[in-house]
């Protein structure tokens, strides 16, 4: 079942076309890689889908419903969650409180219920000592907290923007396992932006490749990585 779909999605920033005529779909239970060189428009694309940026033209559909111009907080409520590349854990809030936010506002739970479900999610992600200040967390713990916060929205579509960046290889393996597990258990549609190709290869079933805002290739990683256009995009035409 298709959870999310875009048609001809375009976003211009003054003269620059950050995302151009992009059509894609993301299915329930699928982990999709979104790759491309720096400045290809990956983050803008996630911003468009999650409602942080509004498109110049085109259409976004969630479970058959047109949500092109729906504000971000409403999208969070109907089931689209995401993490951010630059993470700002909320100061003055503990780990558990950070995670609770999604339950409180996206799901409208009481603080008590939200705490209970946040605790369950943290346990699932092996995140402990939940009353700590976020300033003292390790990078791995911050990443887990971000994922936990997104999951507290109880999403059906989840976008992870460079969630592995800054982790060592053991930690990366651990998070890959975690993402695969939560996606399978919840039948989530997951979109992953990642620079490390090893992660994309292991984690995703399908990949879309962006270059200068355009979709230039689509398919399983093994196939896409051999596509001459993709290789050229990454090597800047020097090869």
């Amino acid at each position: 079942m298709t959870t999310l779909r875009t048609e001809g999605l375009t976003r211009r920033f003054q003269g620059l076309v950050a995302v151009k005529d992009l059509s894609f779909h993301l299915d329930a239970g699928e982990i999709l890689g979104i790759i491309g060189p720096n400045g290809a428009g990956k983050t803008t694309f996630i911003n468009l889908v999650s409602g942080i940026t509004m498109p110049s033209s085109g259409r976004v559909e969630y479970k058959g419903r047109d949500i092109t111009y729906m504000p971000a907080h409403e999208r969070a409520r109907i089931g689209i969650a995401r993490t951010y590349q630059l993470i700002h854990p909320l100061e003055n809030l503990t780990v558990i409180e950070n995670v609770m936010i999604g339950s409180v506002f996206s799901r409208g739970k009481s603080l008590k219920e939200a705490r209970r479900s946040a605790e369950a999610i943290c346990a699932e992600l092996e995140l402990d000592r939940l009353d700590r200040d976020t300033a003292k967390l390790s990078m791995l713990e911050i990443k887990k907290m971000e994922i936990a916060r997104a999951l507290a929205n109880e999403p059906e579509a989840l976008f992870l923007d460079e969630v592995m960046a800054g982790l060592n290889s053991d930690e990366t393996k651990q998070v890959i396992g975690t993402v695969q597990r939560i996606a399978a258990e919840r039948n989530l549609a997951v979109g992953v932006v990642e620079h490390v190709m090893g992660v994309i290869r292991e984690l995703t079933q399908r990949v879309i490749v962006l270059e200068a805002g355009e979709l230039i290739a689509e398919g399983p990683y093994e196939k896409v990585s051999k596509d001459p256009r993709v290789i050229e995009a990454y090597l800047g035409g020097a090869a």
Partner: peptide, 21 residues
């Protein structure tokens, strides 16, 4: 407390957690 702290810290992240700022 949650809404205002989240808004103060990062409005974009607050929106993505369902907060109608």
């Amino acid at each position: 407390h949650f809404a205002l702290t989240a808004i103060r810290n990062n409005e974009t992240a607050a929106k993505s957690s369902g907060i109608d700022i």
